[in-house]
Design a protein around this nucleic acid. Sequence first.
DNA 1: CCAAAAGTGTTGAATTTACACCCATGA
DNA 2: TCATGGGTGTAAATTCAACACTTTTGG
Lengths: 237, 237
Amino acid sequence: MVTGTEAGAPPDAATVSLAVSTVIFALRADGEGHPASLRLPLVRRIRDPFEGDWALPGGPIEPAESLAEAAGRNLFDTTGLRSTYLEQLYAFGDVDRSPGTRVVSIVYWALVRAEEADLAAVGENVRWFPADELPGLAFDHNEIVAYALWRLRTKMEYSRIAQAFLGETFTLAELRQVHEAVLRKSIDPANFRRQLEGSKAIIPTEQHLTGGRHRPPRLYRYNSSVELIDNGPLTRP
Amino acid sequence: MVTGTEAGAPPDAATVSLAVSTVIFALRADGEGHPASLRLPLVRRIRDPFEGDWALPGGPIEPAESLAEAAGRNLFDTTGLRSTYLEQLYAFGDVDRSPGTRVVSIVYWALVRAEEADLAAVGENVRWFPADELPGLAFDHNEIVAYALWRLRTKMEYSRIAQAFLGETFTLAELRQVHEAVLRKSIDPANFRRQLEGSKAIIPTEQHLTGGRHRPPRLYRYNSSVELIDNGPLTRP
DNA sequence: CCAAAAGTGTTGAATTTACACCCATGA
DNA sequence: TCATGGGTGTAAATTCAACACTTTTGG
């Protein structure tokens, strides 16, 4: 019979170790052509298994930090940024996913702003890759990124996470281009506008973006009283 | 700089221990009145923190089993059943969720068939509770169950998991009553029928259920070529 | 025959989708 | 004034929701 054993420090606890990793997405505008592309930072491994290969940023958890705080620390150490969106993705714990030792990785995913990602200083062992053309990564990290990409694209269709890629104010065209870049399909601007205006998710400001070549578009702002996404009882407290 | 450290067994790994718990749902028909109710089994703690309180079945992970296998073991040890549906729910890792030691719990949720749940022998320290009227549980298990309930209800609306509560063949009324019991609202039988017939999710058999008081309804069967739910790249391999 | 659930048909509302068209600005 | 993206209007197609109605069985 199994009983809940959150406490009690079982003797074999050391045989399974725990780590937190984070998939970090940014949207970078390529050249002059409009279609921006999803990019993510990877770190080069400097130790034994898969030494020299690229891997997701991550590491063991500190005793005094929660899982989300550990993921935020991954993010900050890798990019120098604080995230506008951070969510748990999945816990990966197959027996053979790490040669030698048994490691369970709790993976988070994060969205950061494009401009800030460009400013961020990156070290020698950090490089940004296009999310759709990754090299062979260490461990099962290719599958992890594939799952994170699927979640990002699925949630983009029914939530407001696209705003996490943009700044304080933005035009509807910018917001639409985020959707188009992530979902890799074109969206009718007229219908996109109506859908958002009816959703109360964004608030029109009185400012317009000048400096463009054509009619200056209105700037919008987040409606902070509407949650980015409904996560049920989890994000309440 | 943080580097991916799936391997390397950091020295402080033992300060955070890892457990797997499982929220098990069954649908039990109460008395003669039609509305069935969601129930779940809890185990009574026999050790130090929260001794005597009820808690989710769970325990430390074995070195040779995956996370899902550990959850399946929780399920079997508690109910004697193998699940028709088992999915990871969330990893809970707040610093103060367990007095004394630091425990990270990876929680799964499972659905089992009503009749089988009744047959299952339960020990002295296992009891089934109505999911909506739980006592104060050990640790943060009340919040965990609330989140599992939210996920169950959310997924019931856009996936086919209701079938996991039923046997090999079933009538449309039975399937509809599962939806009604979980979502706590009544559903139009005519529209429910059309929606399912158009979805290719179920296959009509030539058999009818006799013995009822009225016109014998047709029996249906799962369409096993349609996944219960789209989990993206995760359930593919 | 009667009651009640099984199953079919129909209608209007709400939503999605496609696309025509006017507006405002920089060059 | 012209090209172009910003912004509005509209109508067909599809989906959703409510409910009337017919069918089939046990009693």
